[in-house]
Structures are given as structure tokens and as C-alpha cells.
């Protein structure tokens, strides 16, 4: 009967011999503190949605980079090469993400950081802002590389913290 009443044993996890076997345990609370950091209280278990979201953000980075590379407004010297590199890496990331179940989100970080670096490079160069003569659409797409990169880094941080999980991983809630 024990396994019927133990969600952990039903899931093949044995906590017997640990305090959590028979008592509730509070995690992430530092000595002397009453509560854990705010973000530790958030745990979302939507692995497939999260995976799709991650892929979508990288696809936006790749698409926006390609669009900037195709425009006639090069943010700085050789930026087009860098933008196409980001675009290619993003395309590979999206393909692997959609066609396999590999844990690829760590590989998205260099893509996001590269995109961010290109954006910072553009700040020092001639980035396609409206005040630099670019159209509103071009400027919006250029800024999208920044916003999507930041969004990916936030998602990556949330993944590392365990706030979210991406398929094939799972939160494995045992309550």
C-alpha cells in the first residue's frame, strides 16, 4: 500500500532515510532568513510550451539579424558577416530544436550574446536607427535583435534557476 500513497515512490524516487520522507522541507532559504528569494517561489512546468518559446525567440533573433543584414544599412564594418553568422546559427538551432529532442537551450546563449554584441557594436557604429536615417521598420527590426536577445538571456536564467523547464526535461513535481 505504501507505493499507492507515496507520489515519490510511484514516480520511482525513494526519499526514505531523508527528512523529506516524513516532513515538509523548505528549500532555498538561507540561514537566518525566513523566506527564499522571490524567484525561487516560481516553478512553471510547461516543458513543450517553453521549448517552443525558446525556439521562437531564437528564430526572431535569426530572422531579425537576416533582415538587418539584407538591408543597405550596415551597423559597422563587417557587421553583415556577423549578422549572417548569427542567422545561420539561429537557423541550425531552430532546426535542431524542432526536429530533435536535444537539450539545446545552452547553445542559444552564445547566439543571444553574439546578437547582443553586434547590437552594442552598432551603438558605436552606424546602427539603423531612425535618427541615423533608417526607416521605422528597419529600426524596429534592429531593436528587435536587442529585445529578443535580452528575452533569451532572461529565459536562460529562468531555466537555470528552475523557474521553467524545457522539453525533454520536466519539473518532476512530487509535491
Amino acid at each position: 500500500m505504501e507505493d499507492e500513497n507515496s507520489p515519490a515512490l510511484r514516480a520511482g524516487v525513494d526519499f526514505r532515510g531523508t527528512p523529506n520522507a516524513t516532513q515538509p522541507v523548505l528549500e532555498h532559504i538561507k540561514p537566518g532568513k525566513k523566506r527564499a528569494p522571490f524567484w525561487r517561489y516560481i516553478r512553471i512546468n510547461l516543458p513543450r510550451t517553453t521549448r517552443l518559446l525558446i525556439i521562437a525567440v531564437i528564430a526572431v533573433i535569426g530572422g531579425a539579424s537576416a533582415s538587418v543584414a539584407l538591408s543597405n544599412h550596415e551597423p559597422f564594418l563587417y557587421a553583415t558577416h556577423a549578422l549572417w553568422s548569427v542567422c545561420g546559427a539561429a537557423a541550425l538551432f531552430v532546426a535542431v530544436g524542432l526536429l530533435t529532442s536535444a537539450r539545446i537551450w545552452k547553445w542559444g546563449v552564445p547566439i543571444a550574446l553574439s546578437s547582443l554584441l553586434i547590437y552594442l557594436g552598432g551603438l558605436l557604429g552606424n546602427a539603423p536607427y531612425v535618427w541615423n536615417g533608417a526607416s521605422v521598420v528597419s529600426a524596429a527590426i534592429w531593436n528587435l535583435t536587442l529585445l529578443a536577445s535580452l528575452a533569451y538571456l532572461v529565459l536562460s536564467w529562468a531555466l537555470r534557476c528552475g523557474m521553467i523547464v524545457a522539453a525533454p526535461d520536466h519539473q518532476h513535481f512530487l509535491d
Binding site: 526519499f15 523529506n20 515538509p24 519539473q171
Partner: peptide, 19 residues
């Protein structure tokens, strides 16, 4: 138990005891 899509707690319930 264990089937929620989101949790907003740092508490782990007892694993092998009725709660």
C-alpha cells in the same frame, strides 16, 4: 499531487507520509 502545471512555493511535501 504532482500534476500541477505551476507551483509557487519552496516547500516540498513529505514524500512517504500522509499529509
Amino acid at each position: 499531487p504532482g500534476t500541477s502545471w505551476a507551483k509557487f512555493t519552496v516547500q516540498q511535501e513529505p514524500k512517504h507520509k500522509y499529509y
